[in-house]
Each structure stands twice: as C-alpha cells, then as structure tokens.
Amino acid sequence: MTQYVTEKDVRDMAAYARVGLDERELVQMTEDLNSIIDTLQPIRQFNLEGVEPTFHPIGSLSNVMREDEEQPSFTQDEALANAPKQQDGSFLIPAILGGGDA
C-alpha cells in the first residue's frame, strides 16, 4: 500500500485536533488513513476536465428565508396556563445543579 500520510502527519493532525494518540493508536491511525486514501484512488481515473465544481448535488437549490416580521403570539398568561408551577410570571422548574427547592 502506498503511504500518503506519515506518522508525523498523523501526529500533527492529532495535535491540531487535540486528540491524544499513544504509539499503537498512531500506527493504526496512519494505516487506516492510508487505506482510506488508497480506496479513493479510482476516482482520480475520471476525466474531469471542463467539469464545473458544484456545491450542492441539486444544482441551483437555495435557502428561501421569509422576512423576520413580528406576528401575534401567545400572551404571557396563555403561555403559563398549563405550567405545573409558576412564579413571578415565569415557569418554575426543579433545580438541576442543586441549591434550589423548586
């Protein structure tokens, strides 16, 4: 198998991504990455001269956004109507970090 990335390359990538690799993992990751790259090599056989790069497989698909306009919504009383507990116009929920008795 051809070596596309070296152990130094993998060590540098791991350091950049802040991933700790011991020596055994470094060797395995180097082998895995080289195997993956080797698997993708047949793609290089395609003649892509003159093919325009695309950013989405569906062509001119675009994100359609509506204007951000204020619209009628629930009143505070309607929003709190089914709340099991409320206090001072807000939902009252159990404390998750301790120190509260809600």
Rank of each mutant, 00 (worst) to 15 (best):
A14W: 02
A79Q: 03
G50D: 04
D88M: 07
P94A: 03
G20H: 02
T54G: 12
G100R: 00
S35Y: 15
T6L: 14
R18S: 14
E67K: 10
L92H: 06
S73P: 11
T30Q: 04
E67I: 05
F74Q: 11
R11P: 03
L61Y: 15
R66G: 14
E78N: 03
P57K: 03
Q76Y: 02
S73D: 13
E23M: 00
L26Y: 04
A81N: 08
V64D: 06
F46M: 05
N82K: 10
F74T: 01
D68C: 05
I96T: 04
E52I: 08
S62R: 06
A15S: 12
G100K: 00
V27T: 05
S35V: 11
E67D: 13
T54K: 05
G59Q: 06
L97F: 06
T75W: 01
E7A: 11
A95W: 00
N63E: 08
Q45M: 06
I96L: 00
T75D: 06
E7F: 12
G59R: 01
L61F: 13
E52G: 10
I36N: 15
D38Q: 11
L92A: 02
V64A: 02
E25I: 02
D101M: 01
S35T: 14
A15Q: 10
M65D: 08
Y4C: 03
G99D: 01
D38P: 01
T75P: 07
V64Q: 04
T39K: 10
D68R: 12
G89S: 10
D77I: 05
E25L: 06
A79I: 08
T2R: 07
L40C: 09
A17C: 13
E69M: 14
N47H: 09
P84R: 08
T6V: 15
A15I: 13
I36D: 15
G89H: 04
R66I: 02
S60M: 14
Q76W: 02
L48S: 13
V10L: 09
Q28N: 14
Y4I: 07
I96Y: 00
E52L: 12
L80G: 04
N47A: 11
L33G: 09
D32N: 11
K8H: 09
L97I: 00
I93P: 00
P53H: 14
S73R: 12
T6N: 02
T54E: 10
L92G: 01
S73L: 07
I36Y: 15
D9Y: 08
G100V: 00
F74C: 10
T75E: 07
A95S: 11
E69C: 13
F55V: 00
S90R: 07
E7P: 09
K85D: 10
E69Y: 04
T75C: 09
T6C: 10
M13G: 09
E31V: 14
E69W: 06
